[in-house]
Design a protein around this nucleic acid. Structure first.
Lengths: 142, 142
DNA sequence: TTCTCTGCAAACGCTTTGCACGGAT
DNA sequence: ATCCGTGCAAAGCGTTTGCAGAGAA
């Protein structure tokens, strides 16, 4: 369902709504499981036998560049992709390896628990434009 | 300097203090620049011509397993290594690509600035033992 | 001697690149 | 006819593995 909405969503971001792109975005919207490229490919190739992994790579890269989906890196060498309107954090269980979404915001760092999960490590990374680059304006490019 | 302290630091963590390990840890302690394996290798091979990248891989992996250094993944396909007693966050400038340490803790998410840097994205990942694995105790290993 | 550290070379796995085919406009 | 999406095959690159030689205990 909501294939039309998916196509519209693509157009909102100025992405031409090809069949593959619709299916890939649809998968991301309906499966908020932080899939890898391989996850997406394996799930979709059953219904689209001609699908290639290159297309999945191309497509998620395009989606990320258009800020339609977010790339998540919790573990190394596994790029995962995440469609979500709501900013959130992740909790990865070292035992069962599941990746949980965390929406709670307050007192994140005041205890060693979050949503009942025992925190052993955390990694908080910000990206943006640093104060030096901000004051230097655009001229410092390159 | 402080070669002796480095050796002691290794012994504290039950790591035999070989020459290479001392030099690699010394480099990490003195260069809090979140170096990659390649950074470490390139810096040290000048003074230790026989050094191999495999040894650097082996060594940082050992350090991480002994919790002597932390593995940082801000960008994909670049594993960086970080010696630091103080837990902290990172801010990566999208323009100049520099990686800043952030020690401030309060109101992290209440504004779109931190230490004067303009935040455009953030990624907060936790790792530990999830509530299900905790209640299941040790029996659920596998 | 035995155990561990070291290092070369090859293998590995994810990702990217180059190029050509095919469909849409 | 042109542009863009797609896909195969090969290359690329960081990392891991296997194994052998060197050094320490």
């Amino acid at each position: 369902m909501i294939i039309n909405n998916i196509a519209q969503l693509l157009e909102t971001k100025n992405i031409q709504a090809s069949y593959h792109r619709i299916k890939i975005l649809e998968y991301l919207v309906n499966n908020r499981i932080h899939p890898t490229v391989d996850n997406i490919y394996s799930a979709l190739v059953k219904g689209i036998p001609t699908l290639s992994k290159t297309t999945v790579y191309n497509t998620v890269k395009l989606f990320v560049s258009k800020k339609l989906v977010m790339q998540v890196t919790v573990e190394d060498n596994e790029a995962r992709y995440d469609y979500s309107e709501t900013p959130h954090f992740h909790f990865k269980c070292k035992k069962c390896e599941k990746l949980y979404d965390i929406f709670q915001e307050s007192d994140l760092l005041k205890s060693n628990e979050i949503d009942g999960h025992r925190i052993e490590e955390y990694h908080i990374d910000f990206k943006g434009i640093c104060s030096f680059c901000t004051t230097k304006g655009e001229m410092a490019n390159g």
